[in-house]
Amino acid sequence: MPPAVLISNLQVAFGPRPVLQDLSLEVAEGTFFIIIGPNSAGKTTLLKTMAGAVRPRQGQVEIWGAAADRYPSRELARLVAVVPQRAPTDIPFPVQETVLMGRSPHVGWLGLEKQHDFDLAAESMYITGVAHLARRPLPQLSGGELQRVIIARALCQQPRLLLLDEPTAALDPAHQVNIMDLMQRLQEERGLTVIMVSHDLNLAALYADQLLLLKEGKRISSGTPKEVLTYEQLERAYGCALLVDENPLGKGPRVNLVPRRFLLKQPGA
């Protein structure tokens, strides 16, 4: 069985500007994998390359053993679902229709859904907590509700690999935990492989099996949260001091922001 994602010597560039360089990594099936790093480190580009939307200049991205940009679009969408950072939501489709669009790679050429598709949509809306919004048109939803609708649509695709770009950025703490718990549950119960871009280092530490720390398109570090989230590596990546201690929940490291005035304080002053 090939790994869910196998990346070798990947190089991606927009024009002359390299965005990702000499990147190799392997994500085994059923892993919860989180990509972290400062702004413009190439996290989103890496995710898009895995989704087949960005063509590498050099190297390969293989999804279950076949090159991501060689898959027929429909076939890739049955394996991989994407929750993008900004999905256009200005068209007044109702929530249920939006979620049903996740069935697109599965339905026949007339584009009409069957009972099975409606059941899957109902289930996806239920587990993401948007079932009560089913008939509401998208422009009437809040940012957090929209995010959960887009996640429901991705689940409705029944993917084996789910790629999410900062899915918790617009959510309050309760919904952040709900979404992360949901991802973990799907990973454990259905063997779903989850790859996520996140800026929330503590959420990453609490949920990820594997972390990848990127800076300027290069790998700083990768491995378990304990291996990656160290004071030295975080300072190298972010260029600022971050205090790392033990999470009181007893599960790995915790990262704390340090205001400048605490750094300048002299001992004993």
């Binding site: 049955r78 669009m101 007339l110």
Partner: peptide, 24 residues
């Protein structure tokens, strides 16, 4: 008429349409 669903997907923008399995 048979391309109605692809048209719906195109409304969502090229990127999303691609992620939903459309050869844009």
């Amino acid at each position: 008429l048979c391309l109605a669903r692809p048209l719906n997907l195109l409304l969502l923008g090229e990127e999303t349409a691609r992620y939903l399995g459309l050869n844009v």
